[in-house]
Design a protein around this nucleic acid. Sequence first.
DNA 1: CGTTACCCCTGGAGGC
DNA 2: TGCCTCCAGGGGTAAC
Length: 275
Amino acid sequence: MPELPEVEVSRLGLLPYLPGQRIIDAVIRTPRLRHDIPAGLARRLAGLRIEAILRRGKYLLFDCESAHGGGWLIVHLGMSGSLRLVAPGSPAQKHDHFDLVLAHTVLRLRDPRRFGAILWHDGHDVERHPLLAVLGIEPLTEGFDGGWLYTATRRRSGPIKPLLMDSHLVVGIGNIYAAESLFRAGISPLRAANRISRERYEKLAPAIRTTLEASIAAGGSSVRDYVHSDGGAGCFQLSCAVYDRSGEPCPTCGTPVRSIRQAGRSTFYCPRCQR
DNA sequence: CGTTACCCCTGGAGGC
DNA sequence: TGCCTCCAGGGGTAAC
């Protein structure tokens, strides 16, 4: 489920409720997710207060502070994770792995496939956490543009689509938005990254930005007292042009959308519009 | 160093 | 109804 827009929508949904709240406790029902939940995390969290919620790539970062020093609770939703705010004492259901118990509410992580993660980083400089330190550029920041992409791909001879999904280069672009962005830019997912002109990267960067921002805008309106954008309705409120539309007509030219596999993931594209 | 394969895990869909 | 296979929005790690 979550790519950058869904994580950002989760963050925006939590912002009105969590900052300022005191952490009472944490409940760990499943110690082993993508990474082991740090031992002693509940004791470390108790008494801290959530000051802010940030996002880096697909990681949610909860700034937890006290007079005696604090740290960061780091949450990744993996493929199937979601966060909800539930009433204190609300019974946990299947796949509810982690609770952050606050004074007036409980932040609950549900993740059937357990590819998500709950991490902790002591101190203020969360960017130095090993999993965050290696992340690439944020696609919604000013520095991300066609020139940046062009420069960053000069030694990359592999196809552009798996590269767009590489968080060490640029964060937040998952399988859906990689396909949709390339469609919007008219670039074939198979094209070698270092054989795409600067001019075409000048189209791709805004295509990525627009695709992500439109999705955030569409998801942000539907969330209120709980945070979850599951919905199941394919690509959320926005319909996808090519993703998961194998054989259907391209919305631009009518050519059947083609489906292939790249680096173990399915790719959808229009063989006529995308070169 | 760049690129790919594999693996972690559960659940839903579709074939038989 | 059951059983099988395949597929799924991520990403760390090992191997080439």
